[in-house]
Amino acid sequence: MKAKQILLPTAVRMEMVRTFKITRSTLDRALKYTGNSARDNMLRKAALQRGGLIYLGVPAPNGYLPEVATSFEDGYMRQRFGERIEVALHLESNKAVLKIDGREAAKFDGLTVGAWGNMLYSLQQIYNKLTNTTTI
């Protein structure tokens, strides 16, 4: 997973594209912090108002073990942070889908083991924020 970005369900992304009359690539640039124009800042603010969550993309500390429930079913490894966050990795294609509150927030392809650990660390922080806990 890339560095800092705002995660949003696909339906919310499409609503923003229609509402602000922008392209998906314009919204992606704003949500991934690759631009810093007034419009990029406005789009980020609107995304956060619509329930977007900031993924920080910080490395996991040495020895970090995520507080996840892991299951294997139908060719997928699923890791869940409570009932709110789930990452499903297709074991053959190595493609992953992140869902927050049951809604797809991001897709990933070709994650390395290190990137997977860092992603879980950032997702733990998002989960803690959603549930107002401080464990890490």
Rank of each mutant, 00 (worst) to 15 (best):
M1D: 02
K2Y: 08
A3P: 04
K4L: 03
K4F: 00
Q5E: 15
Q5A: 15
L8M: 05
P9C: 12
T10L: 15
T10I: 14
A11G: 06
V12K: 06
V12R: 03
M14I: 03
M14A: 08
M14Q: 14
M16G: 10
M16S: 04
R18M: 09
T19E: 15
F20H: 12
K21F: 02
I22K: 14
I22P: 11
T23Q: 12
R24C: 05
S25Y: 07
Y33K: 00
Y33G: 00
N36S: 11
N36W: 03
S37Y: 05
L43Y: 06
A47Y: 05
L48Y: 03
Q49T: 07
Q49I: 06
R50A: 13
L53V: 11
L56I: 00
G63T: 01
L65N: 11
P66A: 05
P66N: 00
A69G: 01
A69Q: 10
F72S: 01
E73C: 10
E73G: 05
G75D: 03
Y76W: 10
Y76C: 07
Q79L: 10
F81Y: 15
F81H: 04
F81A: 05
G82F: 08
R84H: 14
R84T: 15
R84Y: 08
E86S: 14
A88T: 03
N94T: 03
A96Q: 10
V97I: 15
V97L: 10
L98A: 01
G102T: 13
A106F: 12
A106V: 00
D109A: 08
D109M: 06
L111C: 06
L111W: 08
T112K: 15
V113R: 14
A115S: 14
G117Q: 15
G117I: 09
N118L: 13
N118P: 07
M119G: 07
S122D: 15
S122T: 11
L123F: 09
L123V: 03
I126S: 13
N128W: 06
T131Q: 11
T135Q: 02
I136Q: 07
